[in-house]
Nucleic acid binder design. Structure first.
Lengths: 203, 203
DNA sequence: GTCTATAGAAGGATAGAC
DNA sequence: GTCTATCCTTCTATAGAC
């Protein structure tokens, strides 16, 4: 009974996730979600009331999934180099399993920045940086990484793994035309990215 | 007369560009475009027949603008290092003037890859790489850049300048919270990006 | 070429039966 | 909890006057 309710709600949630990831908030259709879930439109409203509320549920679940997956990176006791290698292996593998997430998140936040504000209000960004600074104080000196350079470096590190997925439509089309395998490119990228960044950071 | 026609069509085109850049194909509204252009909806259809055709006109104009702006990079007679510096100065400056283009292009191509196919059919990608290879044959050897690494390197170079704009919503929100100026970050990035890449490429 | 008025379709949401 | 039927708004597109 309540078992079955939970099941239906979950089926709807997964269908909604699929539709929103594919078409975004504006392009998604309630009828498509109902079809994918194998139920009718009215039931969507019974569980989630409005399309907007349904979208928010999906968006926040995805945001939480991403955050909970990468917060632990800051707790690992590894050298800076090891941490960079660890990050790229984990991150690119995660994105291989969830290739639609970057474009979805980027696009929906560009359309409505308030969505990010709610997510950000639940975490303390400074604490992440403080952890890094404590764990790697001497290494940062050795690499000549000053506090001012941190935004440039952090965003560069993220760009290298996220961009191929954010621009996946372009990459896949371009690679096809150039006879390159996107999958192989991603496998190689786990190591290439780490090598590239570490070399760029060395004095 | 025909002067005035041209003017009206251009005013509509610019209003459409603004609306599509802001909301994308799915989110854009014909009524908004009419309002921005200071005319009524019927006139939009008189000039462009359908929303879809209007979108295609805007999309292709933007794609052409980007391509025509960066094809010349491959013709410049500069060393590889100079070319990388030149690229980042030009590219980031261009994106500062057109900050909405990356998210728009990426998103619309992800939604409908066929749009890229039409653009790609008009250019010869291989010729760009051939030009680079001819101009920098000895430098590529010196840097140990093999043919296999090209996709990794080229996509990394692009990622570093495009990503901050593709993820602009996130960056602006995050930087605000961290009390960092996005504008200053972008100015610094022109040189940082070049330094970073050149250092990573050196043996 | 430009407008007003409206057709016609699509999509989100609800009422009410079971 | 789930369904069918339907309302109502929004949006693209067209008809027809000027």
């Amino acid at each position: 009974m309540s078992e079955n309710d939970k099941l239906t709600e979950e089926i709807i949630f997964e269908a909604a996730t699929d539709e929103f990831l594919d078409r975004g908030m504006d392009g998604a259709r309630m009828q498509n979600i109902a079809d994918k879930a194998g139920i009718n439109k009215a039931l969507l409203h019974y569980y989630y009331r409005t399309k907007d509320k349904m979208f928010n549920a999906v968006f926040e679940k995805i945001a939480e999934k991403i955050l909970s997956r990468f917060a632990p990176v800051f707790d690992e006791t590894l050298t800076l180099e090891e941490k960079i290698r660890f990050f790229y292996r984990e991150h690119i593998t995660f994105l291989q399993d969830n290739p639609r997430l970057p474009a979805f998140i980027l696009n929906e936040i560009n359309r409505n920045p308030a969505r990010l504000r709610r997510v950000l209000s639940t975490i303390d960004i400074h604490s992440f940086w403080n952890k890094l600074e404590e764990q790697h104080r001497d290494e940062l000196v050795r690499y000549n990484i000053t506090k001012e350079k941190i935004p440039q470096i952090m965003t560069t590190i993220a760009a290298i793994s996220v961009f191929p997925f954010a621009a996946r439509g372009i990459f896949e089309e371009l690679f096809k035309k150039l006879d390159i395998s996107f999958d192989e490119y991603l496998e190689e990228r786990k190591e290439f990215a780490a090598d590239f960044v570490i070399k760029a950071l060395r004095k």
